[in-house]
Each structure stands twice: as structure tokens, then as C-alpha cells.
């Protein structure tokens, strides 16, 4: 039976390195299967987070050959043959052990987003064309691959000022919701740090749910921020008419 060679990161916050394992290849095998084989036969203490094994829970996020991927959605036969498969933890988050990272920061960011705020006395009926756009954002499985690959967080470490693409997607889902009455452009500009995004689209490239994060969420939000905070003509109109931002 053919074998695959995997170089899997073993270590914790104090340090670690890649360790080589050999795994028998089977048809249709994904990287998570190989990791489970290692767990079951060679290294029972290998830490990996997983749950559904169907690319829907977002738990098994890691980096395969340097690219953020879901381990359960990455087929072994899609990787370059004859070369070791390098499996590492998400780089943007603190490591707990082996392939498991601490993604707690994301949940802290999530709590800061102004929640869904329905229009008062609204009739709770809306049409399909009004929800088509926001339904795309609801596909997010919170795997945090986009957070991991975003260079603002990954390379520049701006967790102090930037919410990351996942949460800009969430804000887009709220801002564009036909029943929501709240304006979050001030939050986007000042708290979520949307101006730090320089739209290089890595988040879109890695999204396992194929959400067009940059074009459908981040850029439209940037344009809404421009409406309220940068467009001098709109500022003048608001000054003359007394309208508020977002109207």
C-alpha cells in the first residue's frame, strides 16, 4: 500500500517543531484521516480539534503546506505527490498544543459587535431579494481561516485595532439586513478598524464556504463608511438638510 509522509507540528507555547510520520494512503483520504491514523497508531497524545468531519463545523482548521485549510476538506490526492505534507497549527493565534490553537480572541471580538436591532413596530415580512444578499454571510462556519490568513492579524499582529474578515462579514450581515435599524459605520471605522484592511483578498481565497468576503462584505462596508465619514458632498448635504448619518 502506498504511504504518505506527513510532517506534523508537535509542541506547545514553549516551543516545538515538525515531526515525521508515515501513513498508509487510502482512496478518498483527507488530511484529517491521516492525522487520525497517526493519533490511533503512532502518537495518541497528538492534539487536534475536530468535530463534524464534513466541512461544516469549522473545528479542524490548520495549515497544510503553508495554506490555511480545513483538514477534513483537504484531500491527500490533491496535494503534490511524492512530497511530505506539512501540517501546522493556525499561525495567527496562540498555540495550545500541537495543532490546537486558542481562538478565544475571536469570541471576544464578536461580543463587541452591536447586535441585531429591529426597526420599531416593523412588520416582520420581507421579500427574497432582500435576504438573498445577507444569506451568503450566514454560510460562515467560523473556522477562522480568514482570520488566520489576513495579514493585518497574521503578520502585523493588529489584534488591538482590527476585527478581522470574519467579523466584518458578520457586521455586513447585520448592516444589510432589511429589518435592522442600527448604523454601525462608526463602529466599523473606529472599533473594527475596517480602514486597516487593504483588500488583498486572501480571506476570500481561503474561505471553505466560498463567501466572497472582500467584494460582497468588506468593500460594501467600506463604501458605507465612506458615505458617513469621508464623502465631503454627503457631509455638506447632511449639514444643509440636517439628516443623520446612514439616512
Amino acid at each position: 500500500m502506498p504511504e504518505a509522509v506527513l510532517h506534523v507540528y508537535r509542541g506547545d507555547a514553549s516551543g516545538g517543531g515538525l515531526k515525521e510520520y508515515r501513513v498508509p494512503l487510502e482512496e478518498g483520504m483527507v488530511v484529517l484521516d491521516a492525522i487520525h491514523h497517526i493519533q490511533g497508531h503512532q502518537a495518541p497524545d497528538l492534539a487536534v480539534r475536530w468535530n463534524c468531519k464534513a466541512a461544516k463545523c469549522g473545528s479542524c482548521s490548520a495549515e497544510v503546506n503553508g495554506k490555511p485549510k480545513l483538514l477534513c476538506k483537504t484531500r491527500m490526492d490533491a496535494l503534490p505527490p511524492g512530497q511530505p505534507v506539512v501540517v501546522q497549527p493556525l499561525k495567527a493565534f496562540p498555540i495550545v498544543k500541537d495543532l490546537v490553537t486558542d481562538v478565544q480572541w475571536n469570541y471576544e471580538v464578536n461580543k463587541r459587535i452591536p447586535p441585531f436591532t429591529p426597526k420599531p413596530n416593523a412588520e416582520w415580512r420581507w421579500k427574497q431579494e432582500d435576504v438573498d444578499r445577507v444569506q451568503e454571510f450566514r454560510k460562515c462556519i467560523e473556522c477562522f481561516l480568514c482570520q488566520d490568513v489576513c495579514h493585518v492579524l497574521r503578520s502585523h499582529g493588529r489584534t488591538d485595532a482590527f476585527a478581522g474578515p470574519r467579523f466584518l462579514v458578520r457586521v455586513a450581515g447585520l448592516e444589510m439586513h432589511p429589518m435592522d435599524a442600527l448604523n454601525r459605520t462608526k463602529f466599523l471605522k473606529e472599533d473594527a478598524g475596517i480602514g486597516l484592511c487593504n483588500i488583498t483578498k486572501c480571506c476570500t481565497e481561503v474561505c471553505p464556504e466560498d463567501i466572497t468576503i472582500t467584494d460582497n462584505a468588506i468593500i460594501p462596508l467600506k463604501e458605507r463608511v465612506v458615505d458617513d465619514h469621508y464623502d465631503p458632498v454627503r457631509m455638506l448635504v447632511r449639514l444643509v438638510t440636517g439628516k443623520k448619518k446612514g439616512e
Binding site: L90, K91, A92, F93, P94, I95, T101, D102, Q104, W105, E108, V109, R112, L153, R154, S155, G157, T159, D160, A161, F162, A163, D191, A192, G193
Partner: peptide
């Protein structure tokens, strides 16, 4: 945003 320990 709250700052957190950063692994990068």
C-alpha cells in the same frame, strides 16, 4: 478591539 496574546 481587545489585544490578545499573539502567536505570530
Amino acid at each position: 478591539m481587545a489585544e490578545t496574546a499573539h502567536a505570530a
